[in-house]
Design a protein around this nucleic acid. Sequence first.
DNA 1: CATGCGCCCATGTGATCACAAATGGCCGGC
DNA 2: GCCGGCCATTTGTGATCACATGGGCGCATG
Lengths: 217, 217
Amino acid sequence: MMIPNRPAADQATAAHDRVYRTLRSRIMHGETGPGEAMTLRGIGREFGVSMTPAREAVRRLVAEGALQLSSSGRVSTPDLSQERIEELAALRALLEVELASRALPRAHIALIERLHSINSVIAERVQKRDAVGYIRSNLEFHRTLYLRAQAPAMLAMAETVWLQLGPTMRALYGRLRRTEAPQYHRLIIAALKAGDEPGLRLAVRSDVTQGLKLLTR
Amino acid sequence: MMIPNRPAADQATAAHDRVYRTLRSRIMHGETGPGEAMTLRGIGREFGVSMTPAREAVRRLVAEGALQLSSSGRVSTPDLSQERIEELAALRALLEVELASRALPRAHIALIERLHSINSVIAERVQKRDAVGYIRSNLEFHRTLYLRAQAPAMLAMAETVWLQLGPTMRALYGRLRRTEAPQYHRLIIAALKAGDEPGLRLAVRSDVTQGLKLLTR
DNA sequence: CATGCGCCCATGTGATCACAAATGGCCGGC
DNA sequence: GCCGGCCATTTGTGATCACATGGGCGCATG
């Protein structure tokens, strides 16, 4: 039996939460491919915990759609159907356009500069063909903007959609042979600067659905 | 009418799933008030299971926002702030308008008749001052319509919002001294019959946000 | 060589136990 | 009479165990 040492005040998070967060980050940022299987004992072994916290973390991720349970209880990252991907993209558009719109009146210059700097990180990742890094920075760009919307429930929903799309996104951006930062991010920044709400809505919608388009053809 | 919660494809469900479904239904339909506390051992005792399945069910409900964990891990139904309620109402509007819009081209006469019949059940519940029955039938009305949208992910998100609003809804409709079925449901049905999409969007939006209005004043 | 069958082990599920922390009430002091 | 600290009990967390089941792999057979 493990000795439940008290690691003082720095690590207040429970074990299952640490497992949950790590797995969630992996899935959301495309570090695991679609249909990848995992076992509770395997997770427990990796994190040095028993099956109990592993199970709780997995349950939570299943509830968020980040993982799938087969009929026999086996867990794996979901392999999304074409319709499901389109639906999730539509959800992204719906939610993120609204979030951007709500963030617009609160977007002062410091935010715009921060977005600009994240955008150059994205360009860097793109040139290095670093898919995971690209996805991570791309999501950071969006999250940074949406945080200004002061709408935590809505942002949480958007992140849930990102999570579900995570494993698919790597495959998606893998076949995306681009060498420059996404053009629509520049449009988003421009619309923010100009206070142009219709333009912002269009730019966000385009940015969010662009990936889909090159998957369906 | 019984609870048409799920397609009922699986009857031999695991214990934690039975606990989960029961608690979820209770919370969504306003059978538990806001801020109500529960214990894992208590849940286990009620359902005749150990703490393990109770914990899994609770974790899942926490992930969906149906339950809240205090800093010490105590679980309770959330007591939503005013801003949170408004945000969730905005989410309902956003998602459900889209769902209704997608359902419109697929809404044939049988669906409309079914909605009409559910609506008379609602009227009955209203007259009996049966808050839980009212909420249940009201959600059934919406779910019946949205099922036609063929957008399971979007519907799941809408249900998650209903779940989060559940405990608040009873308090809400408790102070709603109405004696007739909601007028906007009739507008929704009329718009469906006429194939009037803008009218439908407006009617759904109005129906969904009406409850909020009488809470904020 | 291909195919089908059966067995073994890996895997998920749920119960129970040990432990630490928080909670709530009780008692004593002021 | 009121307040504060102390202790018993309740509660969540995580480990371990017993059990049923499904999957995969090897072996036998046509």
